[in-house]
Amino acid sequence: MAWYTVKRLIQGIITVWFIATATFWAMHEVPGDPFIGEKAVSPEVEANLKARWGLDKPPLEQYWIFMTNMLQGDFGISFAQESRSVNDIILERFPVSAILGILAIVFAGLGGVLYGALTALYRNQWPDVLIILLVIIGISVPSFVFASVGQLILVVINQILGFNVLPVAGWGDISHMLVPALVLGLGTMAFLTRLMRSSMLEIVSADFIRTARSKGVPAAQVFSRHQLRNAVLPVITVLGPSVASITTGGFVVENIFGIPGLGQSFVLAVQQSDYGVIMGTTVFYGAFLVLMVIIVDLLYAWIDPRVRLE
């Protein structure tokens, strides 16, 4: 197990290095440097800017400087917000994305398990049909539609009640997070519901359930102790990668609700050719994803002893 962990970590580091290198070169190939703006700058100013940011050096040297700084945990300074370091920006914005992501996962996990179990219990009856219909909508409708509609519903509710039950947008306390987190988690919730349903149905016909029933265990206990517990296993294994994708993929939701998360700066940096932030966020996200995948692999073995780590 220890050797396996070390091996996976080394693989992870190589993956992150590869991500950093590919991003570095791709970024410099895109036309439009960070300094180009609506007003043209004189060749002198452009030369001064490039010199200050080290962009006048040969690309290989820039790459070397970037890599050595990165190894020391320094991603440099944002090109778009000159007086701020990329590390500051990540440290400030990642917790925002993380808390939103975790809330979304809580919604998605609870909702997915609950609705999945319900559909299985009422198989082919109206709750099943209704929930599966909603699941199809949840999987196929993109999050920006949910975000816009969710926000509009909030406006209407607030207007009818005459006061703000929940804020329409902005960031600050837990009341600002509920609706965005729900919207962010809907897709995953729908996916988990389906997964939960099929795994519940598989277990209903399993031998140990029949044994439990024949022993005269009450139906409610069979459901909660045996069925639910076993059916939830595959859901947990899927949750890991979902955590990574949700905490990183919130750009649209962050944009519509005005949430200062990292997903937003990730996308904006690309649009602004903000080299420092592009590299910082990409490497950070890359490392985060790789780490989540490794953790999930290790958890597999821990949750299900039948899995052997090679």
Binding site: Q151, L154, Q159, A169, G170, N255, I256, G258
Partner: peptide
């Protein structure tokens, strides 16, 4: 400036809700 938002619909939603 309690909000930093660029989405036109979101901004008008804030206006409509009196924020």
């Amino acid at each position: 400036f309690a909000y930093i938002l660029s989405d036109a619909n979101a901004i008008i939603n804030l206006f409509e809700s009196g924020d």
